[in-house]
Amino acid sequence: MMNRPEPALHLSQAPAAPVIEARGVSLTFPTADGPVHALKDVNLSIGQGEFVSFIGPSGCGKTTFLRTIAALERPTAGTLTVNGMTPDQARRARAYGYVFQAPGLYPWRTIAGNISLPLEIMGFDKADREARIARVLELVELGQFGSRYPWQLSGGMQQRASIARALAFDADILLMDEPFGALDEIVRDRLNEALLALWARTGRTIGFVTHSIPEAVYLSTRIVVMSPRPGRITDVIESPLPRERPLEIRDSKIFAELSHRVREGLRAGHGAGDD
């Protein structure tokens, strides 16, 4: 169902080998008030082509965990591998594209110029860059907007452009940190639908941080429920929903049951905390 044009799996790996594997990952920040356990003993394994959402209240470590996968933070204990490498090696091998909550587009570059930026940094030649830009702009339905400047686009379109930028260099993994958190619900619904379509077409492995239960349930093949103090995984829910998901699926009984389970998981995690 997911035919990628250029399979980036390492041939030496067994097909079932996880793309991201965390074993006993902990991350402690020293602060003036003593150590803060941002992550404690996190075990998780994410396979090729999965869509995994991380949900939990603020301070539960969901963003921190995504950042450790991206080698933007360093675990203080445990082992974490990405494509069988350390996160830092994977970063150098350009294994992932990262999408932040804000689009972070340069105002002095056009949309195409912004998408071109990582490609220029990575040394793609001009013809290749142009072909890739055209392809990813088409993927996020911004085909006509390459020559526009970011300020000429709406917030939702800007965020789509930033997703296109993360897709342009063929990374296997797409890490998204509350990418639609700053957008209104109508735009968010549309982008969720578009993201699912994009995921189906590209077969990327997606790690997705959110604090919206419907968003997590609608998008994910697996939902990782986390809770704070210390940041940890309290529940991992396999979604029985089919990969093909029209928006109406959110009115179904099974969707409601899933949402309920996520909510229960969040409540249980919160109750176990100190407040």
Partner: peptide, 12 residues
């Protein structure tokens, strides 16, 4: 910082 993180993620 986000801009610097982006640059880092592209191994610039």
């Amino acid at each position: 910082p986000m801009q610097f993180d982006l640059m880092r993620s592209w191994n610039a």
